[in-house]
C-alpha cells in the first residue's frame, strides 16, 4: 500500500485518505461556455507520468491537499495545502 505524505500528519497509508483525482481549474460558472465547463467536468489529461492530484486526509487532519504522483512508478513529491505552490521533491520517506 502506498504511503502518502500528508502535509500535517506525515506518511499515511493511502487507505486512510480519500482520493479525489486529477486537479483541475474550475471555470467561472457565470461566463463559461458549455465546452469549457464540460472540459472541466469530463476531459482528463490522464498522463502516464507526473500528475497533480487532490487527496483528503479523511482519518487524520481532515485537510485537502494536492500532491504530484507519478502514475507509473507511484513516486510522490512534496504535498501542498491549498493556496500554496507545489514544491520540490521531498525527502524519500520509504
Amino acid at each position: 500500500m502506498l504511503l502518502v505524505p500528508c502535509p500535517n500528519c506525515g506518511p499515511m497509508n493511502a487507505a486512510d485518505l480519500s482520493y479525489n483525482g486529477e486537479s483541475h481549474r474550475r471555470p467561472d460558472p457565470k461566463t463559461c461556455t458549455p465546452e469549457e465547463w464540460r472540459t472541466y467536468l469530463y476531459l482528463r489529461e490522464n498522463p502516464s507520468g507526473w500528475l497533480l492530484e487532490n487527496w483528503y486526509c479523511s482519518s487524520g487532519c481532515r485537510r485537502h491537499f494536492k500532491i504530484e504522483r507519478h502514475t507509473l512508478t507511484g513516486e510522490l513529491r512534496a504535498p501542498v495545502l491549498p493556496g500554496r505552490k507545489p514544491g520540490a521533491t521531498q525527502g524519500d520517506m520509504k
Binding site: E22, T39, L43, R44, E45, N46, P47, S48, T71
Partner: peptide
C-alpha cells in the same frame, strides 16, 4: 490502459482516467 496516451499523440483529449 493507454487510450489517453495514444489519443493525446494525435492531439485528441479523452474523457478517460485509467
Amino acid at each position: 490502459g493507454w487510450a489517453s496516451q495514444l489519443s493525446n499523440m494525435a492531439g485528441v483529449t479523452l474523457p478517460i482516467t485509467t
